[in-house]
Design a protein around this nucleic acid. Structure first.
Lengths: 204, 204
DNA sequence: GTCTATACGCTGATAGAC
DNA sequence: GTCTATCAGCGTATAGAC
């Protein structure tokens, strides 16, 4: 389940991914050329192109761990016995994941190239649908569909917002969870104890 | 106040803007080259460059009417006498504006190039800050700042979401307003009667 | 396995002729 | 207003050196 993005290891490959993440976070995917990544590593463009078949490949590899994290949230959430619990566990796990990967959230969210990539990839697309299904429940009415849509955009937006960059993770997590519950009309008590979810995946 | 994006009129200019909006909405700003716009009009790239100094100029001109619409919301909202009313009027006006300009919202929102452009332009930036100030009130606590941030991303996200493309404007408006009130913890009764705001600006 | 050299077609942008 | 011509830079791609 882990590492569907290809994992041939190699030191150069890891260095490249680290540099790419830094540059992507700073100036977006579209705003980062292969030349910039190459310059950052002190090699030529072709050297970069040798390890990844395309720029999209690099993006997918950078984003991979977060996708694994999403899978780590979805699994336990789907195992819950009631719809309310599934919703509560999914929400908490999603907030958790986003807070822990704010920089990555900005990349995933703010760039249409990446959004398109994620929407195109069948496996990634399936994760998104399962997450939405968990949050919305079966056969949701329009109000619920709107709420889930707002939640998705809202969580991502908050993670990206430079005005919230100074807020520490714990505080952001608390308020994001509270806001999310208001959006979905979930009572704070719902869901089991602490819920064992989200396989860490703190990127950088 | 209207038309700060430059309004030399001219039939060719208007045709160009219409073509640009269509292409931007369909494939994003970054995904639309000047060549595509030129081809759509049956002219060369250089002809496009004669009317606009840069691609950014075109984007700003396309987005201009929506900015005017935002100004039309902010003014009346700031004229309200209490913080609660200012918040209520601003929220309703913002939802109104976004629902009426869904296609444009997708352009404004989903592309980091445009987001950057808007964030860079001092006048546009000021509108955004005034809107946030209206929604958050003076000296907001962290919870409120998070809520406003989530609201912004959420409204935009819902406007863009292809899953909600089939929902008609009135229904979307209703549920978006309800969700927004839950996010900001505004009671449905707040704010005066209907509130005269938002200068139409239905693009296309 | 890791890299360089080289090239293709495209982009946004500029200068100047008609 | 529109054209042709030209520019550096981009993502992409192949061939081949070590």
């Amino acid at each position: 389940m882990a590492g569907q993005g290809g994992r041939r290891a190699g030191a150069a490959r890891e260095r490249l991914l680290a540099a790419a993440l830094t540059l992507f976070a700073r100036q977006g995917v579209s705003g980062t050329s292969l030349q910039m990544i190459a310059d950052e590593l002190g090699v030529t463009k072709a050297a970069v192109y040798h390890q990844f078949q395309s720029k999209d490949d690099i993006v997918l590899a950078v984003v991979g761990p977060a996708i694994d994290g999403l899978a780590g949230v979805i699994g336990p959430a789907e195992a819950q016995t009631t719809g309310a619990r599934r919703r509560a566990v999914a929400l908490r796990g999603l907030v958790d994941l986003i807070v822990r990967n704010r920089r990555l959230a900005a990349i995933l969210y703010a760039d249409p190239v990446v959004v398109d990539l994620v929407r195109t990839d069948p496996a990634l697309r399936a994760y998104g649908e399962r997450m939405k299904a968990l949050l919305a429940g079966p056969e949701p009415d329009v109000a619920t569909k709107v709420a889930v849509s707002v939640l998705g955009g809202g969580l991502a937006g908050a993670a990206v917002d430079p005005l919230l960059a100074g807020v520490d993770d714990a505080t952001l997590h608390e308020h994001l969870l509270a806001t999310g519950r208001r959006i979905l009309r979930v009572r704070p008590g719902s869901g089991p104890h602490s819920a064992g979810c989200s396989a860490a995946v703190a990127i950088r």
